[in-house]
Computed example of a mutant assay.
Amino acid sequence: MADHSAAALPCGHTDAELLDVLTDSASPELAEHVRTCPHCQAELAELEAVWAPVQRAARIPVEPPHGLVERALMTVRGVRGGLGAAPVELAQEGGTLRIHPQAVVLLTRQLCAEILTRHPGTHLRGCVGDADEVQVDLAVRYLLPAALAEEVQQELAAALQDVLGAGAPAVWVRIADVEPPRTT
């Protein structure tokens, strides 16, 4: 089999250009050249053999993973939600700081991501809410204890309390998905 690098064929064309022919995105001039060029035809035959499994795989319909759409919408709602909620107000020297509910959700998401780095096998799946209450959904690797959600909830509540003080929202953490164990 030929080396499918960027080296040009004797006619001056490359495998990359021939892949354009295979994907029906070549210029009409190149398509006409390939029909009459023995170098391109030979290389194209080899590329077709290599490219055929890719083309077959591309034709297979793929269903999105279970819950993907719901998780994506939950994330969007979490960031865009709370538009009518009152901001968190923190009294400070010189005035009051107002924090938009969306910023509270984004802060919660960031703090949770930092906390989860200390808990291997856990991943943030969603974070929704407003300035009063935030719900965090986690995915955990199989065989991690269910009490992990409570531990993350306590750590997250403490982190929010450190940043927002009395304005910290109530936090609810739940395990929304369990992933299979890693195989070695």
Score class of each variant (00 low, 15 high):
Ala2Asn: 09
Ser5His: 07
Cys11Ser: 10
Glu17Ala: 04
Leu18Trp: 07
Asp20Asn: 02
Val21Pro: 03
Thr23Gln: 03
Asp24Cys: 09
Asp24Thr: 05
Ser27Ile: 03
Leu30Asp: 05
Ala31Asp: 13
Cys37Ile: 12
Ala42Ile: 07
Leu47Glu: 05
Ala52Tyr: 05
Pro53Phe: 02
Val54Gly: 01
Gln55Leu: 08
Arg56Lys: 02
Pro65Trp: 07
Glu70Lys: 04
Thr75Asp: 13
Val76Asn: 02
Gly78Gln: 01
Gly78Ile: 02
Ala85Met: 04
Glu89Arg: 15
Gln92Phe: 04
Glu93Lys: 06
Thr96Ala: 11
Arg98Leu: 11
His100Tyr: 06
Ala103Tyr: 05
Leu106Pro: 02
Leu107Met: 15
Gln110Asn: 09
Glu114Phe: 10
Pro120Gln: 13
Gly121Met: 12
His123Gln: 14
Asp130Leu: 00
Gln135Phe: 09
Asp137Ala: 15
Asp137Pro: 07
Leu143Thr: 14
Leu143Pro: 00
Leu144Val: 10
Pro145Ser: 14
Ala147Leu: 11
Ala147Asn: 08
Leu148Asp: 06
Glu151His: 09
Glu155Val: 04
Leu156Tyr: 06
Leu160Tyr: 07
Asp162Trp: 05
Ala166Leu: 13
Gly167Arg: 01
Gly167His: 04
Ala168Phe: 04
Ala170Ser: 12
Ala176Tyr: 06
Ala176Cys: 08
Ala176Asp: 14
Pro181Trp: 07
